[in-house]
Computed example of a mutant assay.
Amino acid sequence: MEPAETLELQCALAWPPVTGRWLGTWWFRAAGGFTGRANTALAIGDPGVPVTEALERVCEFAHSHGLEPAVQAVQHGPVERALAARGWVPNVAHEAGHEVSVLVGPLGGPAETARILGEPTPGWWELCAGTTEPSEAQRHVLTTAPALGYGVVEAGTETVGAVRAAVVDDVLHVSRLAVAPAYRRKGLAADLMAAAGAWAGARGATRCALQVSVANAPALALYHRLGFTEHHRYRYWVPATPACEDRSP
């Protein structure tokens, strides 16, 4: 099994920010506030400077993009210990859940009704982003990656299921899996996963990875049924006031 940091980077490359900056192997990210993953510093490995200085730069970068400073770190890893020692705390107020399980599993396939498109449709946007008019940040994050596919299940002219599939190296990264309420518990989520797996396998992927809040019990149950297991967890951390004040004039 590869280190958690390796898989974290592959997942991050499948979910690119609008603006990014590297500090050693730490990646500062900003995307107009659209998702925690695209608006935090991915703190893996060595920033190349003392951690205290690295965190000061995290704060400066976040403030320069109108964001509250936050760090994404592998749970129980050395970065978490360094964060705690410098007055940072887990962001328990994070709306989508501050503790996330990273799961790995088989590609699956073939699909019965789901198919993978080369471009997102209005119905895909509606299910995956909650709008048919995505913001610049939403459009960038969701339509940028080395290889992308947009999974859909359609009932007549209506899109009733959707998923985003991205391939980085040999990993299929799945996100934004959604099924319209009236069509749930009909196997559409599993079929979307199968379609994504078959599509990714044809593009060199050998396994699948995804990220789910530990509080999302229905999603975790679905993925466990599909053969996924937990690889590791990460958490979002924020500075305790006034450890990271905005110093801009």
Results as ranks from 00 to 15, higher is better:
L67D: 08
P120V: 06
L23T: 12
D246V: 06
A62G: 07
D46A: 07
A12M: 13
V141L: 10
Q72R: 15
W125N: 09
V214K: 00
E68D: 13
V49A: 10
D169P: 00
S135D: 06
D169H: 00
A189I: 05
P242M: 09
G97W: 05
G151Q: 06
V49E: 09
A62Q: 07
A165P: 05
T229M: 04
A4T: 06
A73H: 08
N216A: 06
G108T: 05
G204A: 12
I44W: 04
T229R: 14
G130N: 13
C11F: 00
W125S: 02
P78M: 08
C59S: 14
A147H: 11
G161P: 13
E154T: 15
A217W: 01
G105F: 05
W237K: 10
L23S: 13
L67F: 06
L103E: 02
V160A: 04
C208E: 01
L117D: 15
M193N: 03
W124A: 00
E56R: 14
A205W: 02
L172P: 03
R86T: 07
E133P: 00
A243G: 14
H224A: 15
A180M: 04
G36T: 11
P242V: 07
Q211R: 07
K186H: 13
A30I: 01
G24A: 12
R86S: 05
G130M: 13
A73I: 04
G45D: 06
L9Y: 01
A194W: 01
G105E: 01
V238L: 13
P69N: 13
E245W: 04
V58T: 09
P50R: 10
T206P: 02
G33S: 10
L188T: 08
P146W: 08
D191N: 05
S101C: 03
V102L: 11
W237Q: 09
V168H: 09
V160L: 04
